[in-house]
Amino acid sequence: MNVIGTAGMPAAERLAFRREVSAKLWGPCDRRRGSHAEVGFRADSGVSEFGPVQAALVTTAPHAVRCTPDPVRRPEPEVFKLGCVVRGGGLVEQDDRRADLQAGDLILVDTSRPFLGRCAPDAPASLLLLRFPREALPLPARDVRRLNGVRIPGSHGVGALSSQFLLQLAARMDELGPSETARLSALVLDVLTVALAGALDVHGAAPSSTRQGALMAQIRAFMEKNLGDARLTPEAIAVANHISLRYLHKLFQQDGHTVAGWIRERRLEACRRDLTDPRLASRSIGAIAAGWGFSSPAHFSQAFRATYGLSPRQYRTRTPTL
């Protein structure tokens, strides 16, 4: 994760620097300080790439942002931002809609259209911003635009599932290297699809052609979140996502997988990654396997060898920890 911040800069230069960085990341913005202007503007951003999705974890002093697209030069005509409030609150206005936000809530903004964002004035705010081209989503553009400036509650429904994943992502972004972000890219895009398709169902039914894909993304996000739970079974997954066990198996068959096979692959990959992590060098192989839901050490060792051609111990000793 690349960190961009105002720490160490003269107070008088911070706002101008932040405006320049924001223009490069999100487009031209008029960034205005709040009531604490006399102590100097402070802000930090940690930026990571998840395939077509750019994630920025922004921590900032109270301020307002008014963005107006350049009518002459617009190289990315349909770039959206989905924000997840990590800490604090605020409001967003776009297309004559106003959303008052609190921690956990989600908000969609179309950067090709004017919008106003304002942090709560009483405390610093932290926001995870996911920037992505509209074409990356399997949702019709006309439907996505209906969500501009609409609050997606993070307290219940599909919004809560998406919010929980994004809050976890915000908490662990600084731990992720290039290989982890590459592996998570599809999942991040799936979560975006789930959040927006779920909101479309609330504010106007999502097209039927997108519902199955959104449901599959929702199921994968649930499975990733609970991958370390040994009780993660097809039956538990079906119940948690309010579908029949038969339909769950059908969805995975259409995708060329089995439910149990998908869980096993993801767990083995997580164990393989942990076995080469120098921070976990003192942790036993059995503890790593149990932490990712393998209740039988013998079964784990057999499955690992079948997948990677080496036993877990051989893999750990022969692979350099960088």
Rank of each mutant, 00 (worst) to 15 (best):
R131M: 00
R87F: 06
K81C: 13
S185E: 04
S185M: 10
M9F: 08
W262N: 07
R18I: 00
E78I: 10
R113T: 09
D229S: 03
S162Q: 09
R146N: 07
V39I: 09
R18P: 00
R66Y: 11
P320W: 12
V65W: 01
P52N: 00
P124R: 04
T68E: 10
A136T: 02
S301T: 13
V47Q: 12
A186M: 02
A197C: 15
H156R: 08
G90E: 12
R97Y: 11
D143Q: 15
D277K: 06
G88Y: 09
R211S: 12
S311R: 11
E265M: 04
R97F: 06
Q212V: 14
A240P: 10
A240C: 07
A238R: 11
C29E: 14
L57D: 15
D96F: 05
E38N: 00
P62C: 07
E93M: 03
G213P: 05
L184F: 02
D201N: 15
G256W: 11
P312F: 01
D30R: 12
S185C: 05
R183F: 05
Q54P: 01
L25E: 12
R134P: 01
M223S: 08
F304N: 01
G89T: 08
A230I: 00
S295Q: 06
I263R: 13
L57N: 14
R113Q: 14
D30W: 02
N2R: 13
G117K: 01
R231N: 04
A290P: 02
V79T: 07
G104D: 05
R172G: 04
E180P: 05
G83P: 03
A123S: 10
R134M: 08
A206S: 13
A123N: 07
N148H: 04
A197L: 05
F50C: 14
S48A: 09
N226C: 04
P71A: 02
T181F: 10
L130C: 14
E78H: 14
R273G: 01
I243A: 08
K225A: 13
D70M: 13
V191T: 14
P320E: 11
N226Q: 14
W26H: 10
P10L: 02
G90P: 06
L15W: 07
A206G: 11
L248Q: 06
T258N: 06
T181D: 00
L127Q: 03
R267F: 05
D255Q: 13
P207W: 06
P124V: 07
Q164P: 01
R134W: 06
L106R: 13
L196P: 01
G157Y: 08
T59R: 15
S301W: 08
L227Q: 12
G5C: 06
A199N: 05
S296H: 10
P234C: 08
V3Q: 10
A289Q: 03
A23N: 03
A55N: 12
K81Q: 11
L184T: 00
V109F: 03
L192F: 03
N226H: 15
R31A: 09
P297H: 10
R131Q: 07
D277M: 09
P52C: 13
E13A: 12
S244E: 14
P207C: 09
V39M: 15
T68G: 04
L227I: 06
A221F: 04
D255W: 11
R113S: 07
A170Q: 05
N241E: 00
S284P: 00
N148L: 07
P133D: 04
K81Y: 11
A221I: 02
D122V: 03
